[in-house]
Each structure stands twice: as structure tokens, then as C-alpha cells.
């Protein structure tokens, strides 16, 4: 593994909270009536404050399970996770979570969906409203505040979900293939926006994806996972400039070398599996 230690916080880690996420020898086995499946096998990972880590792998490699264990939504079979200095034993509140499906409340407008976060947490209404307005502006949802989810495009629904996950300014943002259901063009656009939002908010982000381009474009580190059993194959440091132009990044040598290297690893594991 290339980098086992927490990555240098860089210019984003202005806060002094250290290792934000610490995953220790995690194993997770699901038992059904017929068989038991090892979703994760001996997974260890450290994520520093303000870092953007992407977890990349084919379906069934346990990457979503890993994210859910970090969030405290699924208990691990063995091993443990420390989040923001505390042991994870129950669903964590200091995080924002975004899913592949936007998972919006159908009966609420975009703004009201974002404010659900504030209502559940009992946040100050005035502060919440101000933050919601700022996020709506930041994600370009202005003018669609009252639109119901079915009146919004897939990309816009995902942006609403992102605003909702960011409303309480969580130190950690966990994203489970948030752009997986979008078309390629919208997805690229969302990647650029996601990167910008991360730079502007200095949140620690762990994003799960099965797109190599997305993983390399967004991540400061790319964690490559392989299935059966789900484990971390390699971790890559991404050496790309902070201010990224999408087109230029995609055609840069650094990007192409890294992407093809990752593709080779994933391809090899697919053959072995």
C-alpha cells in the first residue's frame, strides 16, 4: 500500500482535528440462510482532516458496506472505526451522508427537503435558513427552491441531497456513489461542482464510486478495492493541481497514467476473481 499514514492535511486542513477517520482491521461478514459472504476483509484506512478520499472498485467489493460501517449504520463483524476521535458504535451524527439515489421526500420542495436536516437536529431556524440559502446558491439551485423532487432533473435532485448533507456543516461527508445514477455529462458537471464545494467548505470527504475518472478527478487519494473478499488492493496519491479544469485534467499525462494503472489492477483482479 502506498500511503498507510494519514495524508498531509494540505491547505484544506486548517482545523487541527487529526485522523478524522481511522478504520482498524475491519472485517464484515453477512450471513444469510444459505451462505455467508465476506463483504470486507481486513480493511484499514486513515483519512486526515479536510482530505478528499475516493474509494473505487467494482460492484460487490464492499465499498458501500465500508461507508455504512464508518457512518455507524452497519456494525462490523470484527475490527472498529474511530470517527473524529470517538469509537463508532451507533449511527453517527457528525456526518453528512449522500446516497446513490437522492432519497428526497416527495412531498417537500427542494428547500424544505434541505431543511429536513435542520428540523431533525433541532438547529436554530434562522441559521439553518441562511445556510440553506447559501447552499442553494452555491449549487445553482436558485429559482427551484419550491420545486418538488419530481419536477427536478436527476442532477438537481442530487444537488438537493448534497445541500441537505452539507446543511449542518458536518466535519465529515460520506458519499455512496452520489452521481452513479446520472448521465455522463451531468456527472462531469457534478464532479466539477463537488470539487469546488469541497475546496470552499474544507470538509473531509469519503466518496465511493465505480468510475475511475471520477475517483481520480476528485480524490487526493484513490483507494482501490477488489471483491471476494472485499479488501483494499492499493492506495494511490493523486498528484493533480488543486484548481482543476475538467478537460485539462482529463487529458493530462498524470491523469492518464494513473487511470490506466488503476484500470490494469482492476482488470487483473477481475480475471483472478
Amino acid at each position: 500500500m502506498t500511503s498507510e499514514t494519514a495524508a498531509e492535511p494540505g491547505e484544506h486542513g486548517s482545523q487541527t482535528v487529526t485522523p478524522t477517520i481511522d478504520v482498524h482491521d475491519l472485517t464484515c461478514t453477512f450471513r444469510s440462510k444459505r451462505q455467508s459472504t465476506t463483504a470486507l476483509h481486513d480493511v484499514s484506512l486513515r483519512v486526515g482532516a479536510g482530505e478528499f478520499v475516493t474509494i473505487l472498485g467494482p460492484s460487490g467489493c464492499g465499498k458501500s458496506t465500508l461507508l455504512k460501517i464508518i457512518a455507524g449504520l452497519v456494525p462490523p463483524t470484527t475490527g472498529h472505526v474511530d470517527l473524529l476521535g470517538g469509537r463508532v458504535r451507533e449511527p453517527q451524527r457528525d456526518i453528512g451522508f449522500a446516497f446513490q439515489r437522492a432519497a428526497l421526500l416527495e412531498w417537500r420542495g427542494a428547500r424544505a427537503n434541505i431543511l429536513l436536516q435542520a428540523e431533525m437536529r433541532g438547529m436554530d431556524k434562522h441559521t439553518a435558513a441562511e445556510r440553506a440559502d447559501r447552499l442553494i446558491e452555491l449549487t445553482g439551485l436558485t429559482g427551484f427552491e419550491d420545486a418538488l423532487p419530481h419536477e427536478l432533473s436527476g442532477g438537481m435532485q442530487q444537488r438537493v441531497a448534497l445541500c441537505r448533507a452539507l446543511l449542518h456543516e458536518p466535519p465529515v461527508l460520506l458519499m455512496d456513489e452520489p452521481f452513479g445514477a446520472l448521465d455522463a455529462l451531468t456527472r462531469e458537471h457534478m464532479n466539477v461542482e463537488m470539487h469546488r464545494i469541497w475546496r470552499e467548505t474544507s470538509t473531509t470527504v469519503v466518496l465511493v464510486t465505480h468510475s475511475i475518472a471520477e475517483a481520480v478527478y476528485l480524490g487526493q487519494r484513490v483507494v482501490v478495492m477488489t471483491p471476494r473478499p472485499g479488501r483494499i488492493e492499493r492506495v494511490y496519491d493523486v498528484d493533480l493541481p488543486q484548481q482543476r479544469d475538467y478537460g485539462a485534467t482529463m487529458s493530462s499525462t498524470t491523469f492518464e497514467t494513473l487511470a490506466s494503472e488503476i484500470r490494469a489492477i482492476l482488470g487483473a483482479s477481475a480475471h483472478n476473481g
Partner: peptide
């Protein structure tokens, strides 16, 4: 939607809140 229930627990919502709002 199970995702909404997961979301609700990361928001620290009580059972009653989850019932009433979701």
C-alpha cells in the same frame, strides 16, 4: 425508502421524528 431511514439515523432523529416527518 431504506435510504431515508439510514439518512434519518445519521441526522440523529428520534423514532417519533422519523415517523412524523418521513
Amino acid at each position: 425508502d431504506p435510504a431515508l431511514l439510514d439518512l434519518s439515523s445519521t441526522m440523529g432523529a428520534s423514532r417519533w421524528q422519523t415517523f412524523r416527518k418521513i
